Simulated assay, not measured.
Amino acid sequence: MKKNFILIVAALLIVIGCSTDYEILESQTNISLTADKSVQVIGNPVTFTVKDAKGDELTEEAEFYVDGNKIEGNTFTSDVVGNFEVTAVYNAVTSSPLMINYHDGTGINFRKRMLIEDYTGTWCGWCPRVAHAIELVHNQTEDAIAVAIHGPGKNPNDTGYDPYTYDTSAFETAMNLAPGYPKGYLNRNIQWAFPEPNNINQAIALTQGENPKLGVAMTSSIANGNISMDVNVMFGKDFSNNLKLVVYVVENGLIYEQHNYTSYYDGVDLLEDYEHNHVLRDPLTGMTGEAITADQTKIGQTYTRTFNVAVPANVANTANIEFIAFVIDETGRVINVRKSSPGETQEIELL
């Protein structure tokens, strides 16, 4: 009996001692599979990533299958047009299927947005007419993006003083814009017909019809008085024309009086504590933009312009900043435009 007891104790000690030599692996009940692109041009790769429920990466240990066939590594390229079902397997756990689409480029389209540039001034009594028209457009569509370009009134002692002036007189002359204020321009080179509130369909129509062959997305942050931003432009066809990128810093929520000679806003003059929105503070690229070289505007390519600049000194509140980025062709026409807030990470708006 004593001998049996000793044998049992010895066995327990062996088990206890050995237990410290082995790590019990946590079983995976589900894994997530993602791709860096869900739509790709034939001949270009798609890269896959696998993570567990905690967000820990398992890509190197996982196996990947396309239409049930195992592939080497975690990238896949197709030379034929079609839809492909992708799954990943890790430790006998299979991910939910993921669909990716390969096309020849003719199917790449992007969400269509349009730009309204409102040349205005706090001193300009007829300018609320265009501001009201912009409000009417925004009531009809989310695809119209406005910027208010104030000027010219830099002298505080002048009756035409405007604290938000950004002098674009040289640009207006070079672009042969109509003289005087107010004036609205649609997609940079189409003058908004007078009276603008009666012609909002002219603006809305520019959000309709054939979709553009390039899309814009921004990723940005503001810290310690500095702006860090990437502007990405993806191309759905080969562009050989001289394209330019224009990037604006605008500000909302600026409170200042506004003269009003119109019947809008109850016909009151002055409009005290008027809220001025989407006010141009600085064009990071200059008003005429920066050239994008032709070798970066091919189908399926994404052009990236990185900015690391100080917040414009005329910004009153960085929390009210927005960014507007758009691409113009050689005629000055806006091909597509996008608006973004600091801290936002945007995806290209593929259709």
Score class of each variant (00 low, 15 high):
residue 1 M to S: 15
residue 1 M to V: 14
residue 3 K to G: 08
residue 13 L to N: 12
residue 13 L to W: 05
residue 14 I to N: 03
residue 21 D to K: 11
residue 23 E to R: 11
residue 25 L to H: 12
residue 29 T to E: 04
residue 31 I to N: 00
residue 31 I to K: 00
residue 33 L to V: 14
residue 34 T to I: 09
residue 35 A to T: 11
residue 35 A to Y: 03
residue 43 G to P: 12
residue 45 P to A: 06
residue 46 V to Q: 05
residue 51 K to F: 05
residue 52 D to V: 12
residue 52 D to M: 03
residue 54 K to N: 02
residue 54 K to P: 00
residue 58 L to S: 01
residue 59 T to P: 09
residue 61 E to S: 14
residue 62 A to M: 07
residue 64 F to R: 12
residue 71 I to L: 00
residue 73 G to V: 13
residue 83 N to S: 12
residue 83 N to D: 14
residue 84 F to D: 07
residue 86 V to I: 15
residue 92 A to Q: 13
residue 93 V to P: 00
residue 102 Y to P: 13
residue 105 G to P: 11
residue 108 I to T: 14
residue 114 M to I: 12
residue 117 E to N: 06
residue 119 Y to Q: 05
residue 121 G to S: 11
residue 130 V to I: 15
residue 133 A to M: 06
residue 134 I to E: 08
residue 137 V to G: 03
residue 141 T to K: 13
residue 147 V to N: 00
residue 150 H to A: 05
residue 151 G to F: 02
residue 152 P to T: 10
residue 153 G to F: 02
residue 153 G to M: 04
residue 155 N to W: 11
residue 163 P to K: 01
residue 186 L to W: 03
residue 190 I to G: 03
residue 196 E to R: 01
residue 198 N to M: 07
residue 199 N to M: 01
residue 199 N to A: 07
residue 200 I to S: 04
residue 202 Q to S: 07
residue 203 A to G: 09
residue 206 L to T: 10
residue 206 L to M: 08
residue 210 E to V: 14
residue 212 P to K: 01
residue 221 S to M: 10
residue 222 I to H: 04
residue 222 I to Y: 02
residue 224 N to R: 08
residue 228 S to N: 15
residue 229 M to H: 04
residue 237 K to S: 10
residue 238 D to M: 03
residue 243 L to K: 02
residue 244 K to G: 04
residue 244 K to E: 09
residue 245 L to W: 11
residue 248 Y to K: 00
residue 249 V to T: 00
residue 252 N to D: 14
residue 257 E to K: 01
residue 259 H to R: 14
residue 260 N to M: 01
residue 265 Y to R: 00
residue 267 G to I: 00
residue 267 G to K: 00
residue 268 V to Q: 00
residue 270 L to R: 06
residue 280 L to Y: 06
residue 284 L to S: 02
residue 285 T to C: 12
residue 287 M to W: 06
residue 288 T to Q: 15
residue 290 E to H: 06
residue 293 T to C: 09
residue 295 D to T: 08
residue 296 Q to W: 04
residue 298 K to S: 13
residue 298 K to N: 15
residue 299 I to Y: 12
residue 304 T to E: 08
residue 307 F to H: 04
residue 307 F to L: 03
residue 308 N to I: 03
residue 315 V to L: 10
residue 323 F to M: 07
residue 323 F to P: 02
residue 326 F to A: 01
residue 328 I to D: 05
residue 329 D to G: 02
residue 332 G to M: 06
residue 332 G to Y: 11
residue 332 G to S: 06
residue 336 N to A: 10
residue 336 N to I: 12
residue 344 E to D: 13
residue 345 T to P: 08
residue 348 I to C: 09
residue 351 L to I: 14
